[in-house]
């Protein structure tokens, strides 16, 4: 009981909970689930853009994209490391992912048919991710907060390279501008869904806010993202595909149209355009890498015996 009061005191005082502190089982389980899903999202998120590394139009664009996808791998690893401080096992988390028992962000179940998708992912998808992630730099669990600080620093490059890519295409041919608009049309709504279900239906929000794992509700963050994106879209010269998107002077925010939540739930439950492909690819990469992991471990054992 004393331990629980101490935990509550630390959280209420905005101090950080550290790995070997006592914490409620629910807090630990919520964090493992959230951090693992977050890590999986980074790792699966390498695929839609990795698709374009060999076909990016110049050496400069290839190098940028390669660095970006490598960052996603790094973010996944920071996060798996944070999950491990809670007693989770990375190999087991990977197994849960490839067996479909643990989820990742649904946004990565959408395809990237054109190169403009690389730019729009950087601008909108990484932009939405930043909105979600900046408050997590102050989340109550120390290792998670510290991982997020690193992630956020690096995401800023991701968003800027995307926007710059789009500006370049928008100053190109009519065809290129159409390609950008098409990508925006496809990614805008799924990006809004990245913030999760509306507050009224979000089962985890209330407890997570009490524990200060989350600091803002899904709808607050979604609104912030819409307000940020509108002037960026104007500057870019694209139209966001929502006829109901208007400035509401009274609220000091943009109003926007109804999100198709049936699509959201369909993709979450596994029936998105690329769900099976993404998980199958991850499983194949993991299995194909097994001999490398085994060989390296065996080499280390051999060296140790010789020493």
């Amino acid at each position: 009981m004393d331990l629980e009061r101490e935990f509550e005191r630390v959280v209420a005082a905005d101090h950080r909970v550290e790995p070997r502190d006592w914490m409620p089982d629910g807090y630990r389980a919520t964090l493992v689930r959230q951090i693992a899903q977050h890590a999986h999202s980074e790792i699966i998120g390498m695929q839609p853009e990795g698709n374009w590394i060999s076909r990016a139009p110049s050496l400069r664009r290839k190098a940028i994209l390669l660095a970006k996808v490598q960052d996603e791998a790094g973010h996944g690893l920071y996060l798996y490391a944070a999950a491990e401080t809670l007693g989770a096992d990375r190999a087991e988390l990977t197994e849960r992912l490839v067996e479909g028992r643990q989820k990742y962000s649904s946004i990565f179940n959408y395809p990237t048919p054109t190169y403009a998708d690389v730019g729009v992912i950087g601008w909108l998808v990484d932009g939405a991710a930043i909105c979600n992630q900046v408050p997590l730099c102050r989340t109550s669990y120390g290792p998670y907060a510290r991982a997020m600080i690193r992630v956020c620093k690096e995401e800023s490059f991701h968003q800027r390279q995307g926007y710059e890519l789009l500006m370049t295409m928008m100053s190109g041919t009519r065809q290129q501008r159409a390609m950008v608009q098409d990508a925006v049309d496809r990614w805008w709504w799924p990006s809004l869904m990245m913030f999760g279900p509306p507050d009224a239906e979000s089962s985890n929000t209330e407890q997570s806010m009490l524990w200060r794992i989350k600091r803002h509700t899904n709808d607050e963050l979604r609104q912030r993202f819409v307000d940020m994106s509108v002037p960026q879209a104007e500057k870019l010269g694209v139209t966001l595909p929502d006829p109901d998107l208007v400035w509401n002077a009274e609220r000091g925010h943009h109003d926007f149209g109804e999100i198709d939540w049936s699509e959201f739930w369909r993709v979450v439950k596994g029936d998105g355009p690329c769900n099976q492909q993404r998980v199958a690819h991850r499983r194949r990469a993991h299995e194909d890498g097994a001999w490398v992991r085994d060989a390296a471990a065996e080499y280390a054992r051999k060296k140790e015996r010789a020493a």
């Binding site: 660095a67 490598q70 960052d71 790094g74 690893l77 920071y78 490391a81 944070a82 491990e84 401080t85 990375r90 290792p143 510290r146 991982a147 690193r150 690096e154 992991r293 390296a296 471990a297 080499y299 280390a300 060296k303 140790e304």
Partner: peptide, 23 residues
Amino acid sequence: VGSLHAPDDEMALRNARDLYTRR
């Protein structure tokens, strides 16, 4: 700065460089 998995000390150093000092 964090942690990582590696088969041995040498690989741990190389992985640490790639993971924690990319910039």
